[in-house]
Design a protein around this nucleic acid. Structure first.
Lengths: 187, 187
DNA sequence: TCTCATCGAGAACGATCGTTCTCTTCTTTT
DNA sequence: AAAAGAAGAGAACGATCGTTCTCGATGAGA
């Protein structure tokens, strides 16, 4: 038998891909088991329930997102460049052919009303992102409103790219962010 | 027995409220029947299937959205004011206590991957909105990119208000729109 | 080699859901 | 008043899903 930690990670990877690609309720635990290559019994010994597995998947997405954003902005030196790097990161993401929108927005839309846990995790992730943006904007000498606006642009780009299938939303949002930053710094 | 048109409208109203409030897959046809006050048999004589009912619900939301946006901008005279009225409309919507995000974004997140019909309706609605914004921006003498940016702001405000529970996203988006419009018209 | 604990494969269970069917109750028509 | 057709209430059906249970195989320890 495989190591327990490794098996958990394998299940989370499989569930993440399936949930993201098809939606959560559309994916049965049998499908997760098949893709993860594990027995149902072991699956339920590793995770108490589908809800618990979903929570782990979403929490994993939070750290992935954070790593992605930080990595994208790591090459930039100024706060302004770090902020704009967020939209470059989005651009790369939107162009992946398995892109299907923000997993948190999707999960919230599907289960937010019915599962307080899912709603809470989505809310936490969005607030954490807003705080990250706000910290960079503060370094840059901008206002909290500017920070909120830059976050709104990022959110809008994600849903636009997902539903309308327009990855250009990323650099359109980036261009808007440049204008907003310039406008506020001029004042 | 009630008139057929009236009965259809009643069912659509009930299903709309339930789907929006709890999510689509979380609502059974029994719940729709109970709220609509109709027999299951009649329900299925009025609508071929749950999918057909959902399509009607979403199409109804499209006309409601269009009416709401047009009504909000009807008092405005300039294209600029009409554009900004969109965000005022969003503000009023976000403050309703039954607000739970954009029904199209939610439906897309829940069923977009599994139901081409739902994905198509959501896509149509978003594109129609983008075209509406683009027509106003054109009147105003702005570029297509500005139009896309204003639409992205509206989308972002909706998901931010829904998930983070911050209705202020509406006027933050509005303020950003003002800056973007002013910036482009100055050039 | 025998025993015993463990684990995988998948059958089974109970619940739910979309949809249809049955049966009974009206209403209407002649 | 009798016959017939429609319509409501809800039981029933078949499928699916989350979760648990059974059973047979496997491997370690004495």
């Amino acid at each position: 038998m495989i190591d327990s930690e490794e098996a958990r990670a394998q299940v989370v990877r499989a569930a993440d891909a399936l949930f993201y690609q098809r939606g959560i309720q559309a994916v049965g635990m049998d499908a997760v088991r098949n893709v993860a290559g594990i027995s149902l019994k072991r699956l339920y010994s590793l995770f108490q329930s589908k809800d618990a597995l979903l929570a782990e998947v979403l929490n994993g997405r939070i750290v992935e997102w954070n790593e992605g954003v930080l990595r994208a902005s790591s090459s930039a030196t100024t706060p302004r460049a770090k902020l704009l790097a967020i939209y470059d990161f989005l651009d790369g993401w939107f162009r992946q052919d398995d892109f299907r929108g923000c997993a948190f927005i999707n999960s919230f839309g599907e289960l937010g009303a019915v599962s307080p846990d899912v709603a809470e995790i989505a809310r936490r992730q969005k607030l954490a992102f807003q705080h990250y943006v706000a910290s960079l904007v503060k370094e840059l000498g901008g206002s909290p409103v500017l920070a909120a606006q830059l976050a709104i642009l990022a959110e809008g780009a994600q849903t636009t790219a997902a539903i309308s299938g327009r990855p250009e939303a990323a650099f359109q949002a980036r261009a808007a962010a440049e204008v907003l930053i310039a406008s506020e710094l001029a004042a």
